[in-house]
Amino acid sequence: MTVRDIINMIVVLTVVSLVCGGGLAMVKMATAEQVEYQKIKNVKEPALKKILSDYDNDPVSDRKTIITGKDSKGKDIKTTIFYAKKGGKLIAVAFEAYGSGYGGPIGVVMSINQPDEVLGAIAATTNSETPSVGGIVMASSELRDQYAGKPVDANFGLNSAGGIINAISGATMSSIGVSTAVKNGMEIYKKYKSDILG
């Protein structure tokens, strides 16, 4: 194992890994756009379909990602906004916001009708609630209907906290989670309204 062999070995291995790493990065960038679309189409679209109706464009491709604040580590939080249009006119805006539920973060997708700025409907996306308890609540329309049709600046807190939403008995934690998610959503909407509608 002469020294020349060793250097030759290290150089070849490093160069090949380098080139492969670079090449793969190129492929990754080329496909990133399409992968993003596929991810949203297959994960978010089912939820979007529940809350948006009678639009004639494809909200998944008609989307914009805006920065909505920074998380604890200083990395900025990105929220994707989906636009539903009818005859070219914007009829609703939809995006996802999170609240902390019993099992962990609860994802809630909500749509805000335009131009009257009324909350269209909400639907749960990701949640790790215990299926038997929280899961039912997330799917139950009883909770969801309380949000539908309310103006943007309504107080979506629970009535025990002076809000207009009464919690589902036995799943208060999940109900709180949903209401905080919706409240956060409204915050984002009000704060970044210019970006969203701009």
Binding site: S17, L18, C20, L24, A25
Partner: peptide, 9 residues
């Protein structure tokens, strides 16, 4: 990617 893979190699 290049740095990570090159470094690993």
């Amino acid at each position: 990617s290049i740095l990570a893979m090159g470094g690993l190699g």
